[in-house]
């Protein structure tokens, strides 16, 4: 069984994000890391391939500046190889454009199953996986909290508002996973060393044959930061700090 996992390489969520002042897109410079949300899909894929007794896990990613550090992490976990699409033409790409690029790259691996996170940690748009499925003509199941497969169909427990649904789907299919699906392993030293020699195929949009299709779906303009990020407002309690918390919760519409 061959599984493709879509992985995103993102700026470390621990450091504050910022917007490019001109393009208003997320700044994705410097070292990128494997999105934590994607470690679950990688682990699930490794376990499914292992149980199937054959096949391999291929990573597919789109990132600026030929970034591979996040891919190396996933390769160190045990993925066999990676396809990376890195192209200046994709700067600021929206979800549908991203889906077109990833779908074209995934097709090259001809997988039985495509896994992705339900949403990325930095952008959390959350539509890219189903857009990929539609573009590839695949059925999809989102929000999986468990996955099993017999090689012909995939059985998923899908989170719902009220509990979960048991959902079944013929392969090939695309499934998005939650953080509850499996506990990701930590790369071993041996894995980290092995990852350095694993193949990462880097591609441009022109090589995917979708040139005319890029950035036609959506163009977001007039994006302005209406409010500066109040990064780490620290308040010393003078007996009324609880009011600050109430105001914060109100702003987020939690109460």
């Amino acid at each position: 069984m061959n599984v493709v996992v879509c992985v995103k390489q993102i700026p470390d969520p621990a450091s504050p994000g910022r917007l490019d002042p001109t393009s208003h897109t997320l700044v994705r410079e410097g070292k990128l890391i494997l999105d934590d949300s994607d470690a679950y899909g990688v682990e699930m894929a490794l376990q499914l391939v292992d149980k199937a007794g054959g096949g391999e896990v291929t990573l597919v990613s789109m990132a600026p500046n030929s970034e591979v550090s996040g891919l190396r992490t996933a390769l160190a976990m045990g993925a066999a190889k990676a396809i990376l699409v890195s192209d200046d033409a994709l700067k600021g790409a929206d979800a549908l454009t991203t889906a077109k690029v990833l779908a074209a790259a995934i097709k090259r691996a001809n997988p039985d199953l495509v896994l992705a996170a339900t949403e990325s940690t930095d952008g959390y748009t959350g539509t890219t996986p189903v857009q990929i499925a539609e573009l590839m003509g695949l059925p999809s199941i989102t929000f999986a909290k468990s996955i099993t497969t017999d090689g012909t169909t995939v059985q998923v427990e899908r989170q719902t508002e009220e509990g979960y649904d048991e959902v079944e789907c013929p392969l090939p299919a695309l499934v998005t996973v939650t953080a509850g699906v499996v506990e990701p392993r930590y790369p071993s030293f041996k894995g980290i060393m092995a990852a350095k020699g694993k193949p990462v195929e880097e591609m441009k949009v022109s090589e995917l044959g979708i040139e005319g299709d890029v950035n036609v779906g959506q163009e977001i303009t007039d994006v302005t930061a209406a409010e500066e990020r109040q990064a780490g407002e620290i308040v010393t309690d003078e007996g009324d700090a609880h009011e600050k918390i109430v105001a914060f919760l109100e702003k987020l519409k939690v109460i």
């Binding site: 917007l19 977001i220 303009t221 007039d222 302005t224 930061a225 409010e227 702003k251």
Partner: peptide
């Protein structure tokens, strides 16, 4: 949630 951005679809 600290930053609010405005966007517009032009398609």
């Amino acid at each position: 949630g600290a930053t609010i951005v405005k966007a517009k679809l032009t398609t």
